[in-house]
């Protein structure tokens, strides 16, 4: 039976598009899963020498302060490895909620969707002109 059921690590697949990695966070994430994603993504950046990483959170219906901190931490880790990181797909309801909750996210490079995220990554690679 186990064949049709994705392993837990497949919950958030990591794709490679040229020099860019795309990781999609989706569904209900428990804390352990989130930490495992950090581990896999940083190893994948190091292995592939990706110069940019898109973190797609459009599949998350809730981002509480823990998950928000994890996202910010992943961005910090990816940048330390020399890869630019952009968070894409924050849902409007989540943006409203995070600002009212008071979670600081302004220091992150964000874009509305993956396409705009790719464009932002290209600009960041060229001149390091961060949004913040």
């Amino acid at each position: 039976m186990s064949e049709g059921v994705p392993a837990r690590d497949d919950v958030c697949p990591i794709m490679r598009i040229g020099d860019t990695l795309l990781v999609a966070l989706q569904g209900e994430l428990d804390d352990a899963t989130v930490v495992r994603i950090e581990d896999r993504l940083t190893k994948e950046v190091a292995r592939t020498h990706a110069t940019g990483t898109l973190i797609d959170v459009s599949g998350l219906s809730v981002v509480d302060s823990f998950i928000a901190r994890v996202i910010a931490r992943v961005v910090g880790m990816v940048r330390l490895l020399g890869s630019e990181a952009v968070v894409v797909g924050i849902q409007p309801a989540i943006a409203i909620t995070l600002v009212e909750l008071g979670v600081p996210m302004g220091h992150l490079d964000t874009a509305l969707d993956a396409e705009q995220g790719m464009a932002l990554l290209r600009r960041l690679r060229v001149d390091g002109n961060r949004a913040r």
């Binding site: 209900e28 219906s61 809730v62 509480d64 823990f66 849902q91 309801a93 409203i96 909620t97």
Partner: peptide
């Protein structure tokens, strides 16, 4: 916790933004 709060928020007719706020507060 998040699943039950979401279900009850939908049942009460809360908007998507208010559902998200309630579920997030509950998660905290």
């Amino acid at each position: 916790v998040r699943r039950v709060l979401r279900t009850e928020a939908v049942r009460a007719g809360l908007s998507l933004v208010d559902q998200t706020k309630l579920v997030t507060a509950g998660s905290e």
